[in-house]
Amino acid sequence: MTEAVGMSGGLLSECGLPSSQMMKLLSADFTTTDDVKDMKPSELSQATGLSLKECVEVLRTASNSHHPSPVDMLQIYQEGTELPQIVTFCKALDTLLGGGIPLQAITEVSGMPGVGKTQVCLQACVSVQLPKSVGGVGGEAVYVDTEGSFTVKRLKDMASCAVHHVGTIGGVAEDVSGFTIESIMKGVHYFRCQNCVEVLAVVKNIPKLMLVHPNIRLLVLDSVSFHFRHDFPDARDRAKLLRTVTKELIQPAVTHKMAVLVTNHMTTNVKEKGSATLVPALGETWGHCPTLRLNLSWCGPTRVAALTKAPHCQNSSAYFQVSIGGLRDVSDNMQPSTAGNLQHEPLTKKRKIMESNDR
């Protein structure tokens, strides 16, 4: 998928560069445009001996020589259906999302304080590490905490229940002894960011972090709105930086087949005639950035998740609860009496890990 939608590298010798520059490039083992596309002029100059001015021209010429390579829709469909999804241990919520939290996409979870946004993030950090033998992703997580709401004890509680659950699944051919509380805790890489600059620095550093931890399959940003709402009184400056953050989030998601999960606050949208409604913060500019938007709210004493934006699922709702072990389904007798047909049929195959909940 990545190679197909990306740029195909051509030979530098076909870019029309002067022979003197080509000799130095070839001597330093630079033969294709892909070899230089991510380099800075200073780095290329140090590696080849070319002047900074010459390096700027080489990089500009190499960049202009790239041409998009088309890919047929059947290939995109086949590769998309083969990607696993991160289950939430709540069947209703997974069904709502079309099978779970998708990879190669940005999923936003919004809602009022205390409704369960961070709980969804913690559950995802555990679920992303489920072994592949039981339908999991078998990856690791990066947690970027901007509010200080991350709780190690909650993560450990969820990890303990997940380990017990996987250990009781019958018919598992492969050994899951490596899936332990310790391995789960070790598989979550935590960053505490105090301002927007630190958030952007961490996000930009994800590709380098993956060189050390190549199994990272989930990036959590909890929350995207905390610093951006208070540090940027000018909406234009905020919108510009949000576009930069979005670009930095989606690039590793697509390239490394990661899921990006962000939380967002709610704000009051005042309409004409004094009416007002609660909407996710950061305005319409940010609203176009997430691939999926999930809004959490209360229906009496019961939590409800409403899918308001998704390219592969219809907008609908599902009830869920937060237990000691993490996210779980709500029993029929606990659902509000106004509950209708809130869910739609899942679009992906069932997982062993979720099927076992019926046992």
Results as ranks from 00 to 15, higher is better:
340 G>I: 02
68 P>S: 03
91 K>W: 04
228 F>T: 07
256 H>G: 01
308 T>H: 08
333 N>M: 05
221 L>I: 13
212 V>R: 15
104 Q>K: 05
105 A>P: 00
213 H>I: 14
210 M>E: 09
7 M>P: 07
98 G>N: 06
344 H>M: 08
83 L>P: 00
163 V>G: 06
117 K>T: 00
234 D>Q: 13
236 R>L: 14
333 N>E: 14
352 K>Q: 04
286 W>M: 08
54 E>W: 12
209 L>N: 07
123 Q>G: 01
305 A>T: 07
3 E>F: 03
12 L>D: 07
37 K>R: 15
260 V>M: 00
98 G>H: 07
241 L>N: 05
357 N>H: 01
256 H>K: 04
255 T>I: 06
141 A>E: 08
213 H>Q: 14
340 G>Q: 10
96 L>N: 04
330 V>R: 08
231 D>I: 07
105 A>I: 02
317 S>T: 14
334 M>H: 10
132 K>Y: 03
95 T>P: 01
327 L>G: 02
269 N>P: 00
114 G>I: 00
37 K>M: 13
81 T>E: 07
132 K>R: 15
59 L>G: 01
177 S>V: 09
232 F>H: 08
319 Y>T: 09
110 S>M: 02
265 H>C: 05
264 N>K: 05
194 Q>T: 09
273 K>I: 00
310 A>T: 10
204 K>V: 00
254 V>G: 03
112 M>T: 08
270 V>A: 06
134 V>C: 11
190 Y>I: 14
111 G>E: 02
249 L>V: 09
329 D>S: 02
23 M>P: 00
151 T>Y: 06
289 C>P: 00
300 G>T: 11
180 T>Y: 06
126 V>L: 01
52 L>A: 10
177 S>C: 11
37 K>I: 15
125 C>V: 00
22 M>F: 12
185 M>I: 14
79 E>G: 06
329 D>M: 06
98 G>C: 09
304 V>S: 05
311 P>S: 13
342 L>S: 04
71 V>N: 00
275 S>C: 04
101 I>S: 03
75 Q>T: 15
265 H>W: 05
341 N>K: 11
256 H>N: 13
45 S>A: 15
276 A>W: 02
8 S>H: 07
351 R>C: 03
173 A>W: 05
255 T>Y: 00
303 R>K: 15
191 F>A: 13
283 G>R: 06
354 M>H: 03
101 I>G: 01
238 R>N: 09
327 L>V: 02
307 L>F: 10
36 V>M: 13
20 S>G: 04
279 V>A: 02
327 L>F: 03
295 N>R: 12
15 C>L: 10
267 T>M: 15
236 R>G: 01
32 T>I: 11
197 V>Q: 15
28 A>G: 10
157 D>P: 01
292 L>G: 03
300 G>K: 14
128 V>Y: 09
113 P>C: 06
302 T>P: 03
10 G>N: 07
151 T>A: 12
275 S>A: 08
344 H>Q: 11
81 T>S: 07
